[in-house]
């Protein structure tokens, strides 16, 4: 198996305080990996590191030859101005940015892809609806349609099913499984452990450091979960410098 993402003694954080601490490991190409852990465990921080939005405090990430812009990313709370006067169709169409760029037009093939993506997430008929009129679930469906068009080899989803009803998360999960079938590499931060056990073959249990990483069955044990809960949120404003030697 080829390695898609390699973390080498990776430390990520804010103002020198680590949120992800000395993480090492590899995500194989085509993996469907759940990232689990309490709030404040560093899941979102890890994802921001993967997409290059947050430079590491120490250590590094190798992306298997991919540029950071080849990675599709769904943030936990999308920073979207919902009052902006734009419709569903145009928002989804932005998934074709790589093809169309700043000035390129969208040809018949592109329009067909947009139509299909909107149909796949079940939003046919909503093309002209303004963002302000969408429900939370419809918004998430729209963002998945855009992810679909981005056609990325690596997809990073930060709590994609939080505050989403059962039917919507079922539909969107089917999409994730379809991507998995296409051998794309998927990382998803999740809180619903039943869902992780049912659908995600691999899990990383994170609590600033990796508590456990491997087959979901071996990772989600009661002992590990307890350990994760205890390790989390160790923030001290006057913390001393970390003594762990830097990896070379």
């Amino acid at each position: 198996m080829t390695v898609q993402l390699q973390f080498r003694d990776l430390t990520l954080g804010y103002d020198r305080h680590p949120a992800v601490h000395h993480l090492s490991g590899a995500v194989e190409e085509g993996a469907l990996l759940a990232v689990v852990g309490p709030n404040g465990a560093g899941k979102s921080t890890l994802f921001k590191g993967i997409i290059g939005a947050l430079p590491p405090l120490a250590g590094g990430i190798e992306r298997g030859g991919l540029a950071v812009r080849d990675i599709a990313y769904l943030p936990q709370v999308a920073d979207i101005d919902r009052s902006f006067p734009i419709g569903v169709y145009d928002m989804v169409a932005m998934g074709l940015w790589k093809r169309a760029g700043l000035f390129g037009g969208i040809d018949a093939d592109g329009r067909e892809q947009i139509r299909k993506a909107i149909a796949t997430v079940g939003l046919t008929g909503f093309e002209d609806r303004a963002l302000a009129t969408l429900s939370g679930g419809q918004m998430q469906r729209m963002l998945f349609a855009r992810l679909l068009l981005q056609n990325a080899r690596v997809i990073v989803l930060d709590e994609p099913f939080t505050a989403i009803d059962a039917k919507t998360s079922e539909d969107l999960l089917a999409l994730v499984r379809h991507w998995h079938g296409e051998k794309r590499t998927i990382l998803a931060a999740l809180h619903d452990l039943d869902l992780v056990q049912a659908h995600f073959p691999q899990t990383l249990l994170l609590a600033r450091e990796a508590v456990a990483w491997g087959a979901t069955r071996d990772v989600l044990t009661p002992q590990n979960m307890l350990k994760a809960r205890q390790m989390c949120e160790a923030f001290e404003s006057e913390a001393a410098e970390c003594k762990v030697p830097e990896a070379v």
């Binding site: 920073d79 979207i80 940015w97 855009r146």
Partner: peptide, 12 residues
């Protein structure tokens, strides 16, 4: 950049 600046940063 107005409607979804986070997305723009990830693609361009």
């Amino acid at each position: 950049d107005c409607v979804d600046p986070g997305f723009l940063r990830t693609v361009s």
